[in-house]
Design a protein around this nucleic acid. Sequence first.
DNA 1: CTGTTAGCGCTTTCAT
DNA 2: ATGAAAGCGCTAACAG
Lengths: 326, 326
Amino acid sequence: MTASRVLRDDPQVLPATRERVRAAAAALGYRPNEVARSLRLGRGSGLVGLVVTNLANPFYSRLALGVDSVVVKDGLKTVIGNTGQDPHAERELVADLVARRVDGIIAVPAGADQRHLAAAAAEGVPVVLASRPPEGFAADCVLVDDFGGAHDATARLVRRGHRRIGFLGSPPAVHTGTERLRGYAAALSAAGLAVDDRLVRQGQTEPHEATRAAADLLALREPPTALFCSNNRNTIGAFRAIRALRSSGGPEVALAGFDDFELADALGLPLTLVAYDSDELGRAAARLLATRLNATGPGTATRGRPVPPPRQVVVPTSLVEYEGGR
Amino acid sequence: MTASRVLRDDPQVLPATRERVRAAAAALGYRPNEVARSLRLGRGSGLVGLVVTNLANPFYSRLALGVDSVVVKDGLKTVIGNTGQDPHAERELVADLVARRVDGIIAVPAGADQRHLAAAAAEGVPVVLASRPPEGFAADCVLVDDFGGAHDATARLVRRGHRRIGFLGSPPAVHTGTERLRGYAAALSAAGLAVDDRLVRQGQTEPHEATRAAADLLALREPPTALFCSNNRNTIGAFRAIRALRSSGGPEVALAGFDDFELADALGLPLTLVAYDSDELGRAAARLLATRLNATGPGTATRGRPVPPPRQVVVPTSLVEYEGGR
DNA sequence: CTGTTAGCGCTTTCAT
DNA sequence: ATGAAAGCGCTAACAG
């Protein structure tokens, strides 16, 4: 018992005793069992669950890093679950995190169905959404200015004289993709241009799929003179198609896309990118979670205390130009 | 009690009762508390700790993905801890993972001091090292063929006629860096060339540092005609220095490096890279851990049963050539 | 087949 | 300032 007090820095211990305990603990290499602690304390396990679709995508790894940097400061740890786009895996993962009594969940849901997250929230596990808004339940969330960023990038292409601008994006179920499509469409409308469905290709998740889709667009009878891509996977894929076209003597095609990425300056092609701080996205999500944990007390369902209303943070975007000169 | 049995799929339950329990559980949205389970079972927490220095480096995120893909199949989860090169943070992290009773730890230690990992292993938590061999204690490990890969890449530069080849690498404390330096040196020796210390720069961790170091080498009175870099951060940094030199009318400098990376084919510069399957590195590490968990039983210190000897897996490398044509 | 007892390692409460 | 008792949610071992 006294040992327990010492190791928790309870002041109610005689300094001499404390030292003896400390010495003994050190000698034995003793560390308290965190599993037993969290069981007794009734709080969560001191873990924050992070649910992403693909850690290999730098967007998600930066996000994870941002989350972890804040989470660690609160003495918690991050459990990363990778779902690989599989909705079933995501459901299982979330349920398991809840069973493990994580203190909170930060998720970038893959699809539109968020009932599993709603269930987690209902069981008293605070949920923060990153990059997608909550659907059908209340939760904090951190968004990127998808609409604005896409709008600005597209508008810039228009201002440079492009009238036929293709769109490459993720599957329609992904919120960011559709928001960015909206931004693209709005910029066209504002310029008095119609959205030509034949120039819109949604559904590419990996660069090679995007290369294929871009090549399709560029092979049309009336091909676009510029492409706007809704994420880094599509931009990289489209880049390869454009480069191939150019090296086979075809016309220059302008390229713009959402997400900045490493080596974007080195591709030998002018490139307009919508940049934002993806670490900050993670940090902001973790901060929202921390606030909520402080407000409601970790682990327990809201016990009487007033629940703060859901908050939403929007991370701003900016346009970056890469000259592509060599 | 009966409920407990049902939810554990214990066959000793009347089918009718089982259904009633299942129905009740579903109705209540009941899920067993994993924290309590692991406390009672005495096993670990069903978590595998992964310790890396920088998740934003694609090498580590791929590794993490590989680890997770295998770990999940065994019904476990991965806790990722990012240490940001800080040895102190790494010590704390490992101690904390042990206190959380993770079933095992997979680590890519940042420095040469591995006493914290040895301590974890001594407490009965199986440790698997990735990309560095254990120092001063027994543990399974997965290595890349650092020496061979570096040797082959350097030899190829030599065969192309280069006689002054610079080396850019990580701090000397990093095992891979020194092994790769050895491979570089061996290839030079084999060709009758001496290692010129003025052409060796160790210590760069981030691309911008590598750019600086490469620029230094290229500004020497007798500059190298080729550079070999011991990891992707250095290769990318060196690339920028070489590109800058070229665009200011300087000579062409050949570039080779360890680690393949996305867009390496798109840099407009010929590039020789040492490629290997970094997902496989993670998967292999996780498999080693799984084997050991099956052998010793999770959580408990080796209780009498014979402990299998440490195993070592080496992931092979291959050379990849990127033409860099535009 | 189902229920009772006991205890995993810790901490809160209540003595002393 | 220290210790004894009880219990967090679960399950192994033993009844019934």
